[in-house]
Amino acid sequence: MSSAQSLGELVQEDCPFPAVPGRVGRHDVLVEQSAFGTSLYRIHDGRVLTLRANTGYREDVAAALLDAVERLVDTDTGALGRSVRLRPIDVTGFPLDRAALLGPGATRVFRDRPRLAECGYEVFAVHRTETADGDDHKVFAATVTGKNLGIREHDWTRDPRPRAEVRRLDGQPGGLYRRTRTSRRSTKPAFLPAERVLAQDAPNLLDGVHVSMRDVRGHELELRREWDRLCGTLRAPVPVPESAQEVGDVQFSVPRNEGWRLLGPVFRGDALDLAPLSDAAAEPPETMLHMSVSDRERRRHDDAVHPENLDGCLRWLRALAPSAGNFLVLEARSGGVVQVMWHEGERLWLETPEPERRRWRGRHVALEEAERMITILAREDRVAVDELGDLETGAF
């Protein structure tokens, strides 16, 4: 293995900017500074340990990271392999609480520097909710240093970005978290920001889609959307703040847009307070519909109906390009349907299908009349086309 002096020369040789001797905490290091940030290199016993901060470099954080993994690096005999090892750090005013260490062959910084790759280690500041001790380096590369979580790993001013391992549990083809439009297999790995899944994806799950979310500790959330609610089961012991006892499976039914607020504590590594879940179960229903859009000008043609609140439905009605053939289909909770379509001459047609009678009923309407029909459908869960009068009827 190379001597400390030759390793220092190799570091200097490959650094785009001068690396000068310095001291951080109790560690002798080489410090490389530039407009792009600060990099440190600790050389000891034939090994090189590096860290980097592009934004928000702090010497106390750097010292804490080096302290946390020093023993792991100095005593490594190859057992580290290509797994991530986590060690706790606690720095005042710093939101990230773990040092994540990658060993030889797994570091990105030395990937194109083969003479250092065999003895190079890299440490990152992360949060305990972003990666797990023992994760394969490829998982780390997909989440922390890759694009999946949207983390800027060298930004020391960033907030934690809790991750969720997501997979589909249903057998429906295509759609969210599938490899292709026709595939019944989940993407692997599907590591995503937990907030995105609960705040953006889950509220709009299609009927029949059943999703599993797992945090870094192994807590699993199985959920589906039932009209305006997210329903499912939280599996694994969860500390309850009031009693500090362990509980088993937790059943929940919460408003579809409240998933991150009410279930997010699991993925943020906090204790889950069950009281808000009970309160949320009694909240009034959302005024919403299932909607399908076909608008050539906006290049949108839905293959299935999607949940949308009343305001969103009315915005789409007003925005629908008045070209013949563009249409909206709106369905209420009990199954009643109102659909509108633009005809030639910018005339708006509104009808309701009655499949049990194999017929439809409707007429051309003003935009305000269509708005009123859609509003009644959403608020009262009933089809009110009879109130329009002068309806035409046709068979299908």
Rank of each mutant, 00 (worst) to 15 (best):
V20F: 06
V20P: 05
P21Q: 12
P21I: 09
G22N: 09
R26Y: 01
V29K: 04
E32Q: 12
G37C: 07
T50L: 02
R52K: 11
T55H: 13
T55M: 03
G56Q: 03
Y57C: 04
V61T: 02
A62R: 00
L65K: 00
D67K: 03
V69A: 07
D74F: 06
G78Y: 12
L80R: 14
G81L: 13
V84C: 10
R87W: 06
R87D: 02
P88M: 05
P88G: 05
V91Q: 01
V91C: 08
G93P: 06
A99S: 07
R111Y: 10
R113T: 13
G120A: 09
R128P: 00
A132W: 02
K138Q: 14
V139M: 11
V139I: 15
F140M: 11
G146A: 09
G150R: 05
R152Q: 08
D155G: 10
W156T: 05
P160Y: 00
D170A: 01
Y177S: 04
R184M: 11
K188Y: 12
R196D: 15
Q200V: 14
G208N: 11
R217Y: 03
G218C: 04
G218W: 10
E222W: 14
R224A: 14
D228Y: 13
D228G: 11
L230F: 11
G232P: 13
T233I: 09
T233F: 06
S243Y: 06
D249P: 10
V250M: 01
R256P: 03
R256A: 15
W260K: 01
L262A: 09
P265Y: 01
R268C: 11
A275G: 04
A275K: 11
A280H: 06
A280S: 06
T287Y: 00
L289K: 02
M291V: 15
R296S: 14
R299Q: 11
R300I: 13
L310T: 01
L317K: 12
L317W: 03
R318W: 13
P322S: 05
G325T: 06
V329C: 09
V329S: 14
M341Y: 02
E346I: 03
R347C: 04
E351R: 09
P353F: 03
R358N: 12
R361S: 13
E368N: 10
R372V: 08
I374E: 02
I376Q: 10
G389I: 13
T393Y: 13
F396P: 06
F396V: 07
